Computed example of a mutant assay.
Amino acid sequence: MQPFLSAVTVNGEVISPEAIAAEAQNHPAPKSKPGIAWMAAARALAVRTLLLQEAHRRGLLPTPVQVAEGQVETDDEALIRQLLDETLAPPAPTATDLRAAYDAAPERWRAPTLYEAAHILLLVQPDDAEGFAAAHAQAVALLDEIRRSPRAFDEIARQYSACSSRETGGRLGQLTSGDTVPEFEAAMDAMDVGTISGAPVKTRYGVHIIRLDARAIGAVLPFEMVAPRLSELLEKAAWAKAARDFVAKLAADAQVTGITLQAA
């Protein structure tokens, strides 16, 4: 752990180990690899320091704005925003850019898929490993019973499901893309209509047995309909690239110790 406890300096300005440790709480990493969070935090603070130094060098004065109801920027946040607003001016995407982005993957732009499904939920707290194991074993047993008698699904849902849909035999009604958690939707996408999940499906809520009654895949949307959204995405991507390039230039001209900014 010792290598991760040293201070970082940016053009002579010290970022203390205590500040890095506090920032590391905002960078998830496996508990067995705390160094990942430490390095990410050190890089984030080093970049922040570089940007603030440049803002001060240019003589900018902070003018905080409200970013949400009851929430106003700090002076540092305002300075960084003002610096980037002053510095970055990526070109707007052209009609040709939009068309090329759409034609590269038109299947990305679909209307929502519609589902009709039913499920049996065995509720488990997200951090309860033993609970998930027990629920999985119970779900396997229930699946075996349902396979022997598919009509038993409704009654088993009423008896065992922790979801309010148990009152209707587990029926969830019509769902659209995004209505359920990604794990549940992925399971429905992988199933054939009229079938029951071949194995229990684990989500953040517990363990599910899913029956897919119907699915209507959304049609590919025409270019004209998605062009505004495409333009917004390309503008954001261009701005992000310009910001990365700007930070890379600052880093290349800076004297930084204790961390490398190559992966910042």
Rank of each mutant, 00 (worst) to 15 (best):
E86H: 14
G131L: 02
K33C: 04
T94L: 00
E23N: 02
A29D: 08
N11E: 04
V47Q: 05
L98H: 03
T203R: 02
K31R: 12
P228G: 10
T49C: 04
P228F: 14
V8Y: 07
A21Y: 00
P30V: 10
A139N: 06
R81Y: 15
E116L: 01
E54P: 02
D76S: 12
D213A: 12
Q71I: 13
R166D: 01
N26Q: 13
V72G: 04
A24V: 10
A152C: 14
N11I: 03
D76T: 10
P3M: 09
A141L: 09
T9I: 09
S32F: 12
K236E: 15
D85V: 06
A101I: 00
R147M: 06
R151S: 15
G194M: 04
A157I: 14
L45P: 02
T180Y: 01
D75I: 04
D85A: 14
A100C: 00
H27Q: 05
K31E: 07
I259Y: 02
N11Q: 05
K202F: 06
H119W: 02
V226A: 06
V247F: 04
Q174C: 10
P182V: 05
S231F: 08
E145L: 10
T96L: 00
G170L: 10
R57V: 03
R171D: 11
A141M: 07
D75V: 09
A24W: 05
Q255C: 08
A252T: 09
G169F: 14
L123R: 13
G206C: 04
P126K: 12
L5W: 13
F4W: 10
T176C: 11
A19G: 12
R43M: 06
L5Q: 14
M191R: 02
A251W: 02
R151L: 14
A78S: 15
